[in-house]
Simulated scan of single mutants.
Amino acid sequence: MRNLLTLFVLFTITSKTMAQDLLNILESEAPKTKNYTSATFKGTRILNGHSIELRKKGVTEFVISHRFGRVNLGIDELYGLDQSNIRFALEKGITDNLMVGLGRSSFEKTYDGFLKYKLIKQRSNKNSTPISATVFGSVAYRSIKDFDPLDKPTFNQKLTYFTQLMIARKFSPELSLQIMPSYTYRNLVKTNDDPHGIAAIGFGGRAKISKRMALNAEYHYTINPLKSIDTTNSLALGLEIETGGHVFQIILSNSITMIEKSFITESTDNFFEGDIHLGFNISRAFQGKKKNKNHN
């Protein structure tokens, strides 16, 4: 009986050791999942500005942005609704990490194009990455003819360049935050006192309040503002609603423009004095047709 008990103990120990060795082998051979964090923000915009998010490869997005006049204009202007500024844009995911876009704004009849590339993706595996980072670059062409015909600016003088690094972290399913250092460069300025290059830093966030709704906020501080106009820092608060393929944002902001070179460096209204513009962003994403890999 004692011999049988000894054999049973030895068999149990050996079996456990073999099972552990087998488990170690399976773990070493299994593919390493990277566990990338998804949906740090629900759309490609926080409110006025971009988020770190990109559209996936082959996805095309149509974006309509609208800003009305100041709500403190009173009933004669229907609290700003008689005035409006609109931007249309078509944006596409070239790869999962590269996105391009073209847009046209009614403000100053401006055309803009951009490239957006994701550098780092937040992930939570063993070799975790605590943040996501995306770089954004755009060029804007101001086509409005508000100049003296005898002093017509050249094509290059009408161009403004913008670059931004977006760094974000999703702290929980309910909270995401983003920081955005940026630089704007104008080929032509109004006065000699105006800087050609303007540095700024922005902050944004998203707080989820239900399955399909979130509160967003965004603020940009300009380090060396323009001197020819009395500028203010851009502030926006908004409600985000997801409905299927649509992301709809209702916005209150002191900025009436919707491209970075304008709302970051050219805003002149004071949010806390009632210079608030009601607006919205709405986007619709379209998935490209997938090729059928099966051959008859």
Results as ranks from 00 to 15, higher is better:
residue 193 D to E: 14
residue 187 N to T: 01
residue 65 S to Y: 01
residue 223 I to C: 10
residue 71 V to K: 09
residue 76 D to E: 15
residue 146 D to E: 13
residue 250 I to H: 02
residue 177 L to G: 08
residue 228 S to L: 13
residue 210 S to D: 14
residue 248 F to D: 07
residue 119 L to Y: 09
residue 162 F to V: 00
residue 135 V to P: 03
residue 221 Y to C: 12
residue 258 M to L: 11
residue 203 F to R: 02
residue 39 A to W: 12
residue 250 I to P: 00
residue 55 R to S: 13
residue 258 M to P: 05
residue 213 M to R: 09
residue 18 M to H: 14
residue 47 L to T: 00
residue 269 D to M: 06
residue 119 L to M: 14
residue 253 S to D: 08
residue 212 R to V: 07
residue 29 E to W: 13
residue 187 N to K: 00
residue 268 T to W: 08
residue 252 L to W: 02
residue 272 F to H: 09
residue 157 Q to Y: 01
residue 164 Q to F: 01
residue 227 K to E: 13
residue 108 E to C: 04
residue 37 T to S: 11
residue 263 F to S: 09
residue 265 T to A: 10
residue 93 G to K: 12
residue 48 N to F: 03
residue 208 K to F: 01
residue 197 G to R: 07
residue 274 G to L: 12
residue 143 S to Y: 02
residue 216 N to A: 09
residue 147 F to C: 01
residue 43 G to Y: 00
residue 98 L to M: 12
residue 245 G to V: 08
residue 258 M to I: 04
residue 82 D to T: 15
residue 92 K to N: 15
residue 207 A to L: 13
residue 69 G to H: 01
residue 287 Q to R: 14
residue 171 F to V: 08
residue 108 E to M: 07
residue 155 F to K: 00
residue 56 K to S: 12
residue 218 E to G: 11
residue 286 F to P: 05
residue 155 F to Q: 01
residue 65 S to T: 04
residue 227 K to L: 09
residue 52 I to E: 10
residue 134 T to Q: 10
residue 275 D to W: 04
residue 52 I to T: 10
residue 38 S to E: 13
residue 140 A to I: 03
residue 211 K to N: 11
residue 125 N to I: 07
residue 148 D to R: 06
residue 174 E to M: 12
residue 81 L to H: 07
residue 240 E to C: 06
residue 18 M to I: 15
residue 149 P to W: 02
residue 273 E to K: 15
residue 282 I to R: 00
residue 40 T to P: 12
residue 164 Q to N: 05
residue 167 I to G: 06
residue 128 S to Q: 05
residue 175 L to E: 11
residue 199 A to I: 10
residue 243 T to H: 13
residue 246 H to I: 03
residue 56 K to I: 06
residue 88 F to E: 01
residue 249 Q to G: 02
residue 290 K to S: 13
residue 75 I to H: 05
residue 182 S to K: 01
residue 20 Q to T: 09
residue 293 K to R: 05
residue 33 T to V: 14
residue 238 G to F: 00
residue 63 V to M: 04
residue 207 A to E: 05
residue 76 D to M: 14
residue 251 I to H: 01
residue 169 R to L: 01
residue 173 P to A: 11
residue 183 Y to G: 00
residue 116 K to R: 07
residue 248 F to E: 04
residue 69 G to I: 07
residue 7 L to Y: 15
residue 138 S to P: 03
residue 65 S to K: 10
residue 171 F to N: 07
residue 112 D to Q: 05
residue 218 E to I: 11
residue 103 G to E: 05
residue 149 P to F: 08
